[in-house]
Design a binder for these strands. Structure first.
Lengths: 343, 343
DNA sequence: TATTAGCACTCGGAAATGATGAGTGCTAAT
DNA sequence: ATTAGCACTCATCATTTCCGAGTGCTAATA
């Protein structure tokens, strides 16, 4: 099907897409001939456009407006029409500038990254924190809060931290807690959180037979402490999309905001991206989420040499500046990876 | 000035305000007579309304629309017209239902509370986390991350946790770190973070003379670890205000969202509320923030017996259902206080 | 055969027009 | 002090008109 496209029709399609990306208005045959150096008359272009519509690359909002690229057209555009471009110097600098760890916890770094993505792309930045369960446990700590409440602190290899308050029936002394955490740190060293889960179950079997009550309690405690929610998503720069003409009307705006209020929906989408390493692009309806109509997502995974960690990217309208944004996302993912690598 | 208000004009003003709160439309003399059991003709009401406008309680959007309450009117309304009402049973239950600590860290509890506030009030919920600096330090811990990076974990009395990654030039062993944190926990026990700051400076003087290099380094390290950003604000339920007719037009909507994207602005406002314990109400322009035009904030402080901790509340349009929301905020603050008290 | 010029037609959007009705202020009567 | 009556104002909505950008088709052209 694609093969049917002559060189000329590709050029025209590309011109239309790029025009539409900047104007957000349906583009007519006239504009195509004028703004791009094609030596063709509007009439010819019209014929070609008519063919392109037939093939499903263009759509007309109504009889006498220009034409608008479909999702299929954008797909073709990013897949084959779009040349690889480098990140502009200034953008590269802005990205670099935002990449510094010191004095912030991981959460802040990621949020900051999300904000940075939104500011250089002018769309929304999105960063999904490392999946905690897939991470290697580095450290575990109990802090007595008073009453029967204990604060558990879990630190993963990558430096992210999860806290959890658990209530116990027993009254542990500070020394008990230190001994317990020492024991557990020993026991669980080097395992991923997921593995920890299994290991604990095994050990609880053993402990039962050994009648060592403190240890057995320690095991129970730590079992409770395993985090259940383990994905955190930072979406920043929502207000950027408020300026886009396609969301100018209040109704559309509401939908979008409501959609992103519940981040849960997005997590599924991002999980898919985690699987496929590297750049990943969802255009409009391609993601099965109805709320994403009219929106595209460009993501890339960030990781250490050890294992994949998380996903970051940009959400914008389908007519987003792919040529500019793709390199940005790519470069940012690399920077963040490097940032977390040094350890 | 207020004294000039006869009983009747108060009744009429109250009627207008309450009408406007539900309809969001300018209310005319006609409506006032019809919907409320006043035995007066529209003409009479018109005269009264004219007086009220003179006094600054009402404003007319244009010549022949009804009239709209001013900020001053709302102020009078909440101060003296509004009777104290209890929280409805179902609301009380909904609030209770959301109040449970187990298995969540403090941050989650507060975010959840914010969400709950938004859902029972139908406006935006806002919760400011305890000011970390004013909190008593309970526990401090260093975790070695590899390279020269160290993760510092600070736990406050109230159970909130702050993490920070710091880089050092020295290479500490795990034992070093344990010894250092033991020493510091001893030294800083029972101090507020603010006090810790001072104490550290003093000790660094002493340590210098004693030439104990490890301790001196410990002090330096912990000095770096003191959190700088220490206020976190959770705003939930943004999409609730999308339904309000006064924000129906896209322009207004943009403003609001942009305003709340940067939470920094709000922090100042909430700090003021921290000072005055108990319920606090800002109506429209009363808060000096221009972005707050058309918005009111109802807050209350939550606290333990020890000291004030934070602020929570609801942001809505100036024509918000004060009679309903004020008790909700009040009750929630009390519940959260109790929740954190048990320790 | 591929391209182009010409022309009739379509349709959204902006501006102009007019009717409707809720609301006001004023005056005179109660 | 209150009210009925009346002329007047102005936002809102529906209707109309006009304009222009754009299309599809056909016939002429290279």
């Amino acid at each position: 099907m694609h093969d049917n496209l002559t060189e000329r029709s590709k050029q025209i399609l590309e011109a239309i897409i790029e025009d539409y990306i900047v104007t957000a208005e349906p583009v007519g045959s006239r504009m195509v001939t004028r703004r791009h150096g094609l030596n063709l008359s509007p009439a010819t272009v019209r014929n070609v456009m008519s063919d392109l519509e037939e093939m499903g690359f263009l759509a007309s909002p109504h009889t006498s407006a220009g034409r608008v690229p479909t999702d299929k057209a954008y797909r073709l555009y990013v897949d084959s029409l779009l040349g690889v471009r480098r990140v502009a110097r200034e953008e590269r600098e802005e990205i670099r500038r935002h990449c510094s760890l010191t004095g912030k916890d991981i959460g802040e770094v990621l949020k900051e990254t999300s904000r940075m993505l939104s500011s250089v792309s002018h769309y929304m930045g999105i960063v999904a924190a490392p999946r905690f369960a897939a991470n290697v446990l580095r450290h575990l700590e109990f802090v007595k809060l008073g009453g029967q409440r204990i604060l558990v602190i879990l630190v993963s290899q990558s430096g992210s931290v999860q806290n959890k308050i658990i209530e116990t029936t027993d009254d542990f002394s500070n020394e008990d807690l230190v001994r317990m955490s020492n024991y557990l740190n020993e026991l669980l060293a080097g395992l991923t959180i997921a593995q920890v889960r299994n290991r604990l179950l095994e050990e609880m079997e053993n402990a039962k037979t050994k009648y060592d009550s403190l240890l057995s309690k320690a095991l129970q405690l730590s079992q409770q402490s395993l985090p259940d929610k383990d994905s955190e998503v930072f979406i920043e720069g929502r207000s950027n999309i408020l300026d886009l003409p396609e969301f100018a009307d209040a109704g559309r705006m509401k939908e979008i905001f409501r959609a992103f209020e519940e981040k849960g929906q997005l997590v599924g989408l991002l999980d898919q991206c985690l699987g496929a390493q590297g750049i990943n692009i969802f255009i409009g309806a391609e993601s099965r989420l109805s709320q994403m109509a009219g929106l595209s997502v460009i993501t890339s995974t960030y990781m250490t040499s050890r294992n994949t960690l998380g996903v970051l990217g940009v959400i914008g309208p389908t007519r987003m500046g792919y040529a500019k944004v793709i390199p940005i996302v790519d470069y940012t993912a690399k920077m963040v990876s490097r940032l977390l690598e040094i350890e």
